[in-house]
């Protein structure tokens, strides 16, 4: 019990003292996950909206596939990206393995289906509400997508938060494609795993605390946005 309390105290000290190793890991984690979420949003939101408004052969199967991909196991994604980027793989020439770029690719593959699937559901619901009015204005098909995305902007922020949560908390894929190299590809989750196995609980606890604070902070911002939306636009 005493060791446990001591580890907590040391962890808190690491955070408060501005330990450079610790904050480098935090910053790299944020950089990798935020970039992955940004790329996923740029691809996933239009893709989800397209699936919501456009009718084409195989649409239902595509929706089932995108929904199913939300549950992709991170280690499997890590393995596939590893095979793609390894020296003998099809993209080996890019020499991205064990770099933050490889970790961004892996996290993007994990987050993209979440953003696309949830955006599809949100936009489809909005389309049900607005379709007659938009058609009356002559806004049909893909032309309706920007309007529907804008109308769902606060719902989309919750979806982005869900995607960020998936990315920042993920360990299986980034440890395979990043290699957990000190000062290069070591992020919060992989460092927690490593330091715990080494018995350095202070560092692991400090990072765990920051990870939880980031998760709470992101959700607090999204909740505040949602509350503001309800107050301002009465929806």
């Amino acid at each position: 019990m005493h060791d446990f309390a001591q580890a907590f105290a040391q962890g808190l000290d690491l955070i408060l003292s501005g330990d450079s190793d610790l904050w480098k890991v935090v910053l790299l984690s944020l950089k990798v996950s935020l970039t992955a979420v940004l790329i996923s949003a740029l691809i996933g939101m239009p893709l989800g909206a397209l699936l919501a408004v456009k009718r084409f052969a195989g649409r239902s199967w595509l929706i089932v596939l995108v929904n199913a991909l939300m549950g992709l196991p991170p280690v499997v994604v890590g393995l596939l990206v590893y095979m793609l980027l390894s020296r003998s793989g099809p993209l080996g020439v890019l020499q991205l393995l064990y770099t933050p770029a490889a970790m961004i690719i892996a996290q993007t593959i994990l987050v993209l289906p979440i953003i696309a699937a949830l955006t599809r559901q949100l936009v489809e619901d909005l389309e049900g509400e607005y379709s007659e009015q938009l058609r009356s204005f002559g806004v049909v098909g893909l032309r309706a997508v920007p309007t529907l995305l804008w109308e769902g902007r606060f719902g989309l922020s919750t979806i982005l938060a869900a995607g960020f949560g998936r990315a920042i908390a993920e360990v299986g894929a980034v440890i395979i494609v990043g290699g957990n190299i000190n000062h290069v590809t070591r992020v919060m989750t992989t460092t927690i795993a490593l330091e715990t196995s080494r018995g350095n609980l202070a560092m692991a606890l400090a990072l765990g605390g920051i990870l939880i604070l980031i998760a709470i902070g992101v959700n607090a911002v999204v909740t505040a946005l949602g509350l503001t939306q309800r107050r301002v636009t009465n929806v």
Binding site: Y130, E132, T147, E151
Partner: peptide
């Protein structure tokens, strides 16, 4: 031609922006 529905379908934005939207898309 235009149509007004039984329950008004308003965009989640201001009064002026609702009208401005219709002016733009038309």
């Amino acid at each position: 031609q235009a149509m007004v529905f039984q329950a008004p379908i308003l965009l989640r934005r201001s009064v002026a922006s609702n009208i401005m939207y219709a002016l733009k898309v038309q």
